[in-house]
Amino acid sequence: MSYKERTPVENNSSLDEIDLSKIFISIGRGIVRFFKSIFRFFFLYLDTLISKTKIILALVLAGIILGIAYFYAFKPFYESRMTLNSAYYRGEFLDNSIQNLNRLCSENNYRVLANLLKIEPEKAKTLRKIQVEQIISPNMQMLIDLYKSTKGNQRRIDSLILNHSDSTFQIMVQVYDTTTLVGLDTILVNYIKNNKFVNKRIAIERKNLLNRKAKLIRESKNLDTLKSYMAKSYLPQGPGKTGTNVTLNDKQSNPIDVYREDFRLYDLQLQIDRLLFINSEIEIIDRFITFGKPASGTIEKNAVKGALIGLLAGLLYVFYIILREGLRRFRLIIDED
């Protein structure tokens, strides 16, 4: 009785072992077939590539010719960048002003462009593109990267970019003639400064600076009077008396604090004088630099790009031939069935 009961269990365990071995064998055969098919396709592709060498070389040569033709068919253009700082402009105002110029360039509306920039129409025709981008300070970039590393902070990132107070910008221009870059930085700055909104802000800011400077001068004069009284207090006023403190309305004043305040007011006056002197509503940090090599690429670069495109076209052609032959054989198999 016990033998009959154990026999089915032993048979089931042996069947399970046989089934698992078959599964592992099937997996191994599948992996082998997969790698064999990869190697078969690789050697088939290599063989087809060798057999079509002449066609591929012809495509590469055609790409070189087209690259050289592109260089002579289109005018080469040169690119340069100018960095400036503005105490009054913010991103949206400067971006709108430059976008209007760039749109006129793309529309070939050189008459209006020359009128806005106050330059000759011939010089305006050499302008290809004008763009502006705001330079984010390293500290601001670090905050943005920090928020990017955490999910759900997209609103904070947008708020930082929208409300950050960085006022450094970079203007990129593309020109067909490098002589156009001479004086172009001053021309663009004058165009930006002619904005009525900015002019009002500049006038208000300069008036506020002048009023603040006048107030600082008055306060400095009052401190000079106070310092003279303090100096007199150090002189002996009677037998056995020497002054070390000044008493004003029964309150003692520390001479060191008074002199420190005088130096602080003096520093503020220097800062205001600096702002008024350098006229820093728009300050050029780096001017346009003329580069010898065009940004559109030299004839050698265009030839290399054309050769690479021709080579890519040849490789895709070989792949198309293999795919077409495979589909043809697949149709024959279906027809035979």
Score class of each variant (00 low, 15 high):
300 E>Y: 03
322 I>H: 00
267 D>M: 06
315 L>V: 14
319 F>Y: 08
274 R>A: 04
310 G>L: 07
311 L>H: 04
292 G>K: 14
289 I>E: 06
258 V>K: 10
280 S>L: 07
296 S>I: 12
269 Q>L: 15
285 I>G: 02
282 I>H: 00
281 E>P: 04
299 I>G: 08
294 P>K: 04
299 I>N: 09
283 E>V: 05
304 V>G: 00
301 K>I: 12
321 I>E: 10
280 S>F: 00
267 D>N: 13
293 K>Q: 15
316 L>Q: 02
315 L>T: 07
271 Q>G: 05
283 E>T: 13
272 I>R: 10
283 E>N: 11
263 F>C: 00
267 D>C: 05
307 A>H: 03
289 I>H: 03
263 F>S: 13
286 D>A: 09
288 F>K: 01
287 R>S: 14
316 L>H: 06
313 A>C: 12
284 I>L: 00
299 I>A: 14
298 T>K: 12
260 R>K: 13
318 V>R: 00
312 L>D: 00
320 Y>M: 12
269 Q>D: 15
313 A>M: 13
296 S>L: 13
321 I>N: 01
269 Q>Y: 07
317 Y>L: 15
311 L>I: 12
281 E>W: 05
311 L>V: 02
321 I>M: 08
290 T>Q: 14
321 I>Y: 00
279 N>F: 06
265 L>C: 04
271 Q>M: 08
319 F>P: 06
309 I>S: 14
272 I>P: 08
282 I>G: 04
276 L>D: 07
276 L>A: 10
318 V>S: 07
276 L>G: 08
309 I>D: 06
279 N>R: 15
272 I>G: 01
322 I>M: 09
278 I>T: 10
278 I>Y: 12
265 L>N: 13
287 R>N: 15
300 E>W: 03
283 E>S: 11
317 Y>M: 14
298 T>I: 09
277 F>I: 06
270 L>C: 02
266 Y>I: 01
266 Y>F: 13
305 K>L: 10
313 A>D: 01
315 L>W: 07
268 L>G: 07
311 L>A: 15
268 L>H: 08
289 I>C: 06
311 L>M: 14
291 F>V: 11
305 K>I: 11
322 I>W: 01
258 V>A: 12
273 D>H: 05
282 I>D: 02
306 G>T: 00
270 L>H: 05
295 A>Q: 10
300 E>K: 04
313 A>Q: 04
276 L>K: 11
320 Y>G: 13
284 I>Y: 03
318 V>L: 05
319 F>H: 03
287 R>A: 13
308 L>V: 13
295 A>S: 13
298 T>L: 12
265 L>Q: 06
262 D>Q: 15
286 D>R: 08
260 R>E: 01
284 I>Q: 05
278 I>G: 06
301 K>N: 12
